[in-house]
Design a protein around this nucleic acid. Structure first.
Length: 202
DNA sequence: CTCTTGATCTTCT
DNA sequence: GAAGATCAAGAGC
């Protein structure tokens, strides 16, 4: 009764899979990024299904790690399975998961989430009511989940963070990354095809 | 609907 | 001193 490849719901009706461990991130960022689409990400019980991410690696002129370690990006040069949170344009926090291996400095940027847990808290923090506006961007989702520098450099397999694998399959689309001035043509953005909760309408 | 602009401040050169 | 992995509001069509 469930061979509906074409009537697959945007997501949210599927139950989360097993909890992810740090080892999930110990491989190429270009394998991890698409596998994160459909995963469930919660901070203190608030969050939802990851529907859009972008990959960055050390060979990438757009990556924060491209020019080598600095105090800000140091965690990217450490072991995989940790958060890297930074302040964008002086206003918005953005969160990444460190991938690959110590020294390789690759990460996945979370760009959009389909809200499923703690909608009331998200609406309060964001000051908007439309579910499609709560987590449809890297800065928005951090505000909705109350992610700040205090959540940086934390392991992804321990409270207050919970990450669960996608349980079934997912139809994934790719595209160029958003908001960059360098390496603008690399197709390293991944999204859940047809989701109504992406950072833009494509 | 699309396009443009201002806010705001940390980081690195 | 300039740039930046963004967002929201306002103008124009």
């Amino acid at each position: 009764m469930d061979k509906s490849a074409e009537t697959t719901p945007p997501d949210g009706s599927r139950s989360p899979g097993p909890r992810l461990r740090k080892s999930f991130f110990a491989r190429s960022v270009h394998e991890v990024a698409p596998d994160l689409i459909g995963a469930t990400f919660l901070v203190n019980g608030v969050g939802g299904i990851i529907v859009e991410v972008e990959a960055y690696d050390q060979t990438d002129p757009a990556a924060h790690s491209f020019r080598g370690p600095t105090p800000r990006n140091a965690v990217m040069f450490g072991p995989p399975g940790y958060t890297y949170v930074y302040l964008s344009y002086g206003l918005n926090w953005c969160v990444n998961f460190v991938c690959q291996a110590a020294g390789s400095a690759a990460g996945v940027l979370l760009r959009a989430i389909e809200p499923t847990h703690g909608l009331a808290a998200m609406r309060r923090r964001r000051g908007v009511t439309d579910a499609k506006a709560l987590c449809s961007g890297p800065g928005k989702l951090c505000e909705a989940l109350a992610i700040t520098k205090a959540l940086s450099e934390l392991p992804i397999d321990r409270s207050p963070i919970a990450l669960h694998a996608r349980s079934g399959g997912a139809e994934i689309a790719t595209g160029v990354r958003i908001g960059l001035t360098k390496a603008v043509d690399l197709p390293w953005r991944y999204e859940l095809k047809g989701s109504k909760y992406l950072s833009k309408r494509f």
